[in-house]
């Protein structure tokens, strides 16, 4: 009873906020609605008994990815008039993509109703009903699917290295703080006694060597 109520609450809110993502005029509002959509999706996961996935969804997507989205959208100077002008031109492509997704969903639903899908899902983790789903996921992820898991990790690592390579540049002439060097400084290395002739200037030895 309560579960059903929560299902309809989350489902309606998810669909409504997903609609608002594409309808909202202000891009920051759109991202905030996207976050609300993620949140409701997490709620639906919990109702399915997949609390581990729900928490990961919130931690990864809401806690990290959407923060970066929001960051970028707030910083970018987007020209909304120009964006909206392209709407009619892009509409046929959008409708085509939407149509393909709809057909796929219907195909999936029909095959699932025929019994193709439900038998495949429990086969992924056989005989572990007594365990919590965190343990179940851990058991298959690090045994049966360990190579896929590692491969996914490698893809992310390569993407990270690529992003760093693209953006990293060493500028000349920038003084950087070296905390290790600072901490290693002693009075012997940091202090220099200079004998200054009357009327003369103080020339540090590092300057004098040049």
């Amino acid at each position: 009873m309560l579960t059903a109520g929560f299902f309809y609450l989350f489902a309606v809110l998810a669909i409504a906020s997903a609609t608002m993502v594409i309808v909202a005029r202000n891009p920051v509002h759109a991202v905030l609605f996207l976050i609300l959509t993620f949140f409701n999706a997490a709620g639906l996961f919990i109702l399915l008994g997949a609390e581990f996935l729900a928490m990961l969804l919130v931690i990864v997507y809401v806690g990290a990815v959407a923060v970066l989205f929001l960051f970028v959208v707030m910083m970018l100077d987007v020209d909304f008039a120009e964006l909206r002008a392209g709407f009619i031109n892009n509409a046929p492509v959008g409708l085509l993509v939407a149509g393909i997704v709809l057909v796929e969903l219907i195909a999936l639903f029909v095959s699932g109703a025929a019994g193709g899908l439900p038998s495949a899902i429990p086969a992924a983790a056989p005989g572990t009903e007594a365990l919590s789903n965190t343990e179940q996921i851990g058991r298959v992820l690090y045994t049966k699917y360990v190579y896929f898991f590692q491969a996914a990790g490698l893809v992310l690592l390569v993407a990270m290295v690529g992003a760093i390579v693209l953006t990293l540049r060493h500028r000349e002439g920038v003084k950087r703080q070296s905390i290790a060097a600072q901490n290693a400084r002693t009075p012997a290395t940091g202090l220099e006694m200079v004998k200054v002739a009357s009327g003369g200037a103080v020339v540090p030895s590092s300057e004098a060597k040049r």
Partner: peptide, 12 residues
């Protein structure tokens, strides 16, 4: 049974 993750999620 995922209490710690819940705390992490909410604090994020």
């Amino acid at each position: 049974n995922v209490g710690v993750l819940y705390i992490l999620a909410i604090s994020s």
